[in-house]
Design a protein around this nucleic acid. Structure first.
Length: 580
RNA sequence: GCGCCCGUAGCUCAGUAGGAUAGAGCACCAGAUUCCUAAUCUGGGGGUCAGAGGUUCGAAUCCUCUCGGGCGCACCA
């Protein structure tokens, strides 16, 4: 249960039934956590948003509402503050019930039904199949994967999609690059890889595999004979490579959609015909871009999509001069296909360098769905690889290029995943190797992992001190939670109880990073409580001569572990039970 | 020239569908350990929320303009 939603409903009911507020729109009414905890546990703006319609002073109206709120179950006291806030304190019993719910649900705590089973398609990674993934791809991959998990936790029916850009010029370049490696594998001296082809070593074993499979079959043949079969071989090998990288990162997809297949299946024609029927395709000439005019600009008649009718700045070409479809055209087909598969809500995760592409794709989605579909595009900014505050120098030519796989091998997938989510997607991210290896508070992954491990260490210690039997599940879970009365204990429960709401707001905003900050705060709250036991021995979790209190505190510790594990579950990070 | 994103403490960044005295970490200063793991914790100083208008009970948040930074701008994907 999201406690804020619960109280919003309760207070809304109160207001709807008040004589003075008959017939008023109460949708602006909210119940939130006050920023300053000294103002109480929850606060409502009810009096302020409703006073105008009631023709009353906010504080007078607040007085009436307050009287009713005080009668609510779980509310200990209420007071009017500032311009008309009604601040409430909840009683300890309420918090104990929250704790009991966490213990009951375990890592399912935070699961929500706000998605109501609505279908959402999340497309992410979609790296060109021309080589191994780099760190920037990794950020988009983790972001998309975790956003998908987050939406699932919030009750959406999510499809994780990978769009393979296996059509167009870059895969021909890949085929030519592989052909050279193939010749090399057959013993030819190929020298330097020519400019314009992919020089990476990763094609060497692929060339060998091709030579092994086909022998000298393609040697000496004209390009038009070998281009297609070798291209297929190359793409398939590159997708294996990418799938391996994704596997190492723990990133999953439900559907891999091939651009090439969309074209050959006629899906692009289908999309374009649909637009033609709606009079959204025409032959026309575009104005040259103002300011920086490309050197090779020439006046040209093109097949254009009327993107301007759906909010884009200019109409967009869908066909190249050789008659083949532009990338945009097949991408439109891809999104139309998603819509036809039942996904009115789509989310695409792209690199920030594709920012200029957002409007046209959103325009296309509107056009292809008769304005029923929606597309949210999440742009992920650059990742800067650093070491001890200095940028890591990278050069493909010099062979000092750091791939995603290198980073995963160096620090592990859990660290990569978590760090990728410690920034908003549209903010740049520094990935510092030295910081990430550090075992200190400066390293958020470590700090949160340590809180989880510490919860286990307390339970282990309790088993040692009190005996395995004393800390069996049923005894810990069946403890008398009402013994938890210290303010710092209640504070921890209060923060844990905010988790369901956080999941919902992060899901609605499509912002998984909020979970990272929450988990860090939660870890800090727990470490603080642990340390209070140093100053005041009566606050330690394990009190040998007070077993009932110890049981209640072990339950608290266990719940803390569950909430962190719940967050890690969405993040795809394995919670550690010990740090050694 | 146009579009998108961004501008919050010395640094790196949060800021929960507009809420009360704007937060955290790092760094800096001062402290805490016979201890449930010191890989931690407590306290302190530090701000024109880039600037100017506007909307309203109330703005870091919404709108307009200005300044400053990043990205992108026809037959690449």
């Amino acid at each position: 249960m999201n406690l804020f939603r619960h109280f919003t409903q309760e207070v809304s009911t109160i207001c709807a039934n008040l004589e003075a507020l008959k017939g008023q729109d109460i949708s602006r009414l909210t119940v939130e956590a006050p920023r300053d905890t000294s103002h109480g546990d929850i606060t409502t703006n009810a009096a302020m948003v409703l006073c105008k319609g009631a023709n009353m002073k906010p504080r007078d109206l607040a007085e009436i509402i307050k009287t009713e709120i005080e009668k609510l179950d779980g509310v200990r006291s209420a007071e009017i503050a500032g311009p008309g806030f009604i601040n409430c304190r909840l009683d300890n019993g309420f918090w104990h019930r929250q704790l009991a719910e966490i213990l009951k649900l375990g890592t399912d705590y935070g699961t929500s039904d706000i998605g109501a089973g609505h279908k959402v398609n999340v497309e992410y990674v979609s790296a060109n199949p021309t080589g191994p993934m780099h760190v920037g791809h990794g950020r988009g991959a983790v972001f998309g994967d975790v956003l998908a998990s987050l939406l699932e936790k919030a009750g959406f029916d999510v499809c994780r999609e990978y769009y393979i850009n296996d059509a167009g010029a870059q895969v021909d370049v890949l085929a030519r690059s592989l052909y050279l490696r193939y010749l090399q594998a057959l013993g030819d001296e190929i020298g330097e890889i020519p400019e314009g082809l992919y020089p990476g070593d990763y094609l060497v074993p692929v060339g060998q595999a091709l030579a092994k499979r086909d022998g000298e079959k393609w040697k000496g043949m004209a390009e038009d004979k070998w281009l297609l079969p070798i291209r297929d071989f190359a793409i398939s090998a590159m997708m294996d490579l990418i799938r391996e990288d994704l596997g190492a990162l723990g990133v999953k997809h439900d559907v891999f959609t091939s651009e090439h297949k969309l074209v050959s299946d006629g899906k692009v024609d289908e999309a374009i015909n649909f637009l033609k029927e709606n009079n959204l395709i025409y032959q026309g000439v575009l104005e040259p871009p103002k300011g920086q005019k490309p050197d090779d600009w020439e006046m040209r008649e093109q097949t254009l999509f009327k993107a301007t009718e759906f909010g884009d700045d200019v109409d967009r070409p869908v066909q190249k001069s050789d008659g083949s479809w532009t990338y945009f055209a097949s991408d439109m087909a891809c999104h139309m296909d998603k819509y036809n598969r039942g996904f009115a809500d789509m989310i695409d995760v792209w690199g920030a360098d594709h920012g200029g592409y957002v409007k046209r794709m959103q325009a296309a989605v509107k056009a292809l769905s008769n304005n029923k579909g929606s597309l949210d595009v999440k742009l992920c900014q650059m990742v800067n690889l650093m070491d001890a505050g200095e940028p890591v120098k990278m050069s493909k030519r010099a062979g000092t290029f750091v791939t995603l796989r290198d980073v995963i091998d160096e620090v592990g997938k859990d660290v990569v995943r978590f760090i990728m989510l410690t920034r908003k997607n549209d903010a740049g991210l520094d990935f510092d190797f030295s910081k990430v290896r550090e075992q200190s508070k400066d390293n958020p992954v470590f700090y949160v992992q340590y809180a989880h491990a510490r919860s286990y260490s307390v339970l282990r210690m309790a088993a040692e001190e009190l005996g395995e039997d004393a800390v069996r599940d049923d005894k810990v879970l069946g403890g008398d939670l009402s013994l938890l009365v210290d303010e710092s204990e209640i504070a921890l429960i209060r923060l844990m109880a905010a988790w369901p709401r956080l999941v919902e707001s992060a899901a609605e905003a499509h912002e998984p990073h909020r979970m990272a900050f929450y988990m860090y705060d939660l870890a800090a709250e727990f470490h603080q409580l642990w340390n209070k036991g140093k100053d005041d021995a009566s606050l330690r979790f394990i009190i040998k001569d007070d077993v009932p209190l110890t049981m209640a505190r072990l339950a608290l510790v266990r719940a803390l572990g569950s909430v962190i594990a719940s967050g890690f579950g969405v993040f795809g990070v394995t919670p550690k039970e010990e740090m050694r």
